[in-house]
């Protein structure tokens, strides 16, 4: 799984996605083809601002392995200001979350390939303010 993680490092660390110059839509994670324009699409890499708002969320008690130590933790469906949506961990008190809450991207540790393996970093979100 080492190359699999390495390959996507830029997109995870920097919140880099795609923008189609033909239709003006933004996508995260990045896409090779625009699902609206397909062959007519002109997909370019784009750096997202990292700001967005919460559309929905869950406080997860039955955690996936890498998040086990953090349970309960919050994952949220976030609409980035550019328009793309992302499902990402949200680091905050679960009782403070509201629909539409403004959030911003932060750089955090996601887990590791065991004690001897590489460390996975990526983008999580925190409330603004």
């Amino acid at each position: 799984m080492l190359p699999k993680f390495w390959r996507k490092i830029r997109f995870r660390y920097g919140l880099i996605g795609s923008y189609c110059e033909n239709c003006g839509n933004y996508y995260y994670p990045p896409r090779n083809l625009c699902p609206r324009c397909r062959r007519k699409g002109k997909v370019k890499e784009v750096q997202f601002s990292g700001y967005g708002r919460v559309l929905s969320w869950s406080v997860v008690h039955d955690a996936v392995e890498n998040f086990w130590i953090s349970k309960p933790y919050v994952v949220a469906l976030i609409e980035l200001d550019e328009g793309a949506r992302i499902i990402a961990p949200l680091d905050c008190n679960p009782r403070e979350i509201e629909e539409g809450m403004r959030v911003r991207a932060v750089f955090r540790k996601f887990g590791e390939d065991g004690e001897e393996g590489i460390i996975h970093y990526g983008t999580k979100f925190v409330p603004i303010g």
Binding site: S58, V60, I87
Partner: peptide, 15 residues
Amino acid sequence: WEVFNGANLPALYAM
């Protein structure tokens, strides 16, 4: 892009 980010099936249906 979902499970890596902590969203397993229950979390997705929860959202």
